[in-house]
């Protein structure tokens, strides 16, 4: 390898290349996280680029989410391509913009994804009971009580409800799926690529 080749290889933002390639692959790797109630009563599988709602074994679709997911998939692939281009041509003045833009397309969706998961669990644990029509059920003998408890990110809890003489216990399980590791790795590499780019300038 000539010294010219070696210097060219040194002028590549390798973390950015790796993050960009992972970003291009991420929309096709499936869910990052899953919550299931009962065995097959209800489940939701999510990632920033994928969703699946199942109710009693039947898939449920929300049209607006289908189109939003397509938009996010295109955006992350486009961001990955921009990140790769910016990382390949670090000596070009557009490079910083491309790396900043591309890395942002995995950093922000990933951060927002975890914030939404935590907020969702916080809402269910603290406020969902207040939205149940307990007052309307006061005419039912023994009234109605709801006790919703879900894990924040992973784990199993049991939620309960009592309406009249009926009591139901619903185990709720949350778990991460293996593609989340790719997402976190891509986000970490994207963050490193931003720092790494500073070395060239």
């Amino acid at each position: 390898m000539s010294s010219e080749d070696e210097s060219m290889l040194k002028m590549i933002n390798w973390p950015g290349i790796a993050a960009g390639i992972l970003m291009i692959l991420l929309p096709f790797t499936g869910a990052w996280w899953k919550v299931a109630a009962g065995s097959e009563l209800f489940s939701v599988s999510l990632s920033p680029f994928h969703y699946e709602f199942m109710v009693m074994g039947e898939a449920m679709e929300v049209p607006v989410l289908n189109y939003l997911i397509i938009a996010l998939q295109v955006l992350v692939v486009f961001g990955g391509i921009m990140l790769v281009l910016g990382s390949l041509f670090v000596n070009r003045e557009e490079s910083e913009k491309l790396i900043g833009y591309g890395s942002g397309k995995i950093i922000w969706p990933t951060v927002m994804f975890f914030i939404i998961l935590l907020f969702g669990a916080f809402f269910v644990n603290n406020y969902l009971t207040g939205f149940m029509p307990v007052e309307e059920m006061e005419e039912v003998d023994n009234g109605a009580e709801f006790d919703f408890k879900v894990p924040y990110l992973v784990g199993t809890t049991t939620s309960g409800m009592q309406i009249g003489n009926m009591e139901a216990s619903i185990p709720v399980t949350k778990s991460f799926q293996s593609p989340v590791l790719l997402g976190i790795l891509a986000m970490s590499l994207a963050l490193v690529s931003r720092r790494f780019h500073g070395l060239f300038s």
């Binding site: 049209p63 607006v64 938009a71 955006l75």
Partner: peptide
């Protein structure tokens, strides 16, 4: 990229906000 699929999807669903926003299968059972 964010707006086009949403606008396209909305027009495909007859510009009916309710059918666009709400789940459409699996709950009748």
């Amino acid at each position: 990229v964010l707006l086009f699929p949403l606008v396209y999807g909305f027009s495909v669903h007859g510009r009916d906000l309710q059918s666009f926003m709400l789940p459409r299968e699996g709950v009748d059972g």
